[in-house]
Design a protein around this nucleic acid. Sequence first.
DNA 1: ACATGTGAAATCGTTCACAGCT
DNA 2: AGCTGTGAACGATTTCACATGT
Lengths: 208, 208
Amino acid sequence: LLSEKISERLIIYKFILQRHKSKNNINIFSHQIAEITGNTASQVRRDLMDVGYSGNQKTGYNIDNLISVIQEIIAPNHTINLVIIGVGNLGKAILRYYSDLSPKYSIVACFDTNKDLIGQYIFHSKCYHINELINIVKNNEVNTGIITVPAAEAQNAADKLIESGIKGIINFAPVRIKTPEDIYIEQIDFSIAVEKVTYFARRFKDAL
Amino acid sequence: LLSEKISERLIIYKFILQRHKSKNNINIFSHQIAEITGNTASQVRRDLMDVGYSGNQKTGYNIDNLISVIQEIIAPNHTINLVIIGVGNLGKAILRYYSDLSPKYSIVACFDTNKDLIGQYIFHSKCYHINELINIVKNNEVNTGIITVPAAEAQNAADKLIESGIKGIINFAPVRIKTPEDIYIEQIDFSIAVEKVTYFARRFKDAL
DNA sequence: ACATGTGAAATCGTTCACAGCT
DNA sequence: AGCTGTGAACGATTTCACATGT
């Protein structure tokens, strides 16, 4: 099992390689990956070493091959099914993103309590009442749930996801959710990010 | 200057203490803060030690006092001015959040290229054409900029922010932005978060 | 008894430096 | 000559364990 840091960097490498590929480059060197992603060349090499991937000392790494090796580590074969709870502005932004994409990651259903939304398709995902969550998740092999409800409802949404058997949660609500040990949760709280960035921005400004 | 890890945890402590306060508790122990935030008690004590804060061995830490000490470290005195570029679904979600809040953090202007939005107020922030960004930022002591434009326009938005003198950037576009050394940037990419969480969710499931 | 504050140890993550290959 | 692969050094972060205070 990879560490969080390494898995995150590998995913970033994959993203930038997919972008790089379109300019018909076949191979890439560790220092080029480093340049684009803002890491050091030895960190890139170390990361690839950690997953047992080898390049060529003359030509570097084969882009297509490396993409598919990382892809295979992160998400082997079939489609990954997601659900999203909360179809507000943020929920819609995420639904829109995954409707464009090739269906490696697919939002199979979205949930809300708003009667005007239930039964509608929002960017190709059907909207259900949140009470139907447990049944739909159980019938669809859903891997992870995304929470984009207001802060007050986030813990309840998480509890429903956990009850349905989901092991991965991404929480965008600006509140800390409590989960058992066997759930992997990523809390993306822009209000915390704003405070952190303003803190460092001020320090960077003062350093002049 | 605090490390990223410590500053982030301190901000989280502040958030949960503000919430805890309303239940009229005056004091709190390190193990309680640890419980709520999902850290260990000794990490909480170490963090507070690192900023020179002392509690009481009988009663723990005074909540109000601790909140204001952290507040003073992260953002002393006056309001922090923010701008946001891109008034789509995600931009609106963030604008909505900061319109509710007490004006410690305030989005003083938003920017877009959509003619229907320019001149309008979106959740109390006036929308301008992106070409006016540099002037408005320079005249308003803006601390950090938030990027919520589509991927293709994110680098351009960042370049404009940097040209205007901003030192802190939060980028929500699913693309890696390049910035000079003296800019503090936080890249919040939910597409990377989704891949990472699905990876760990699968591993957690397999562990059963 | 039970909490804080904190050296010291342990763990985790990154970088260095260079052998080996092409 | 310039790259990869990697042991070893380094640095950062977390945890341990306990002296000290109430």
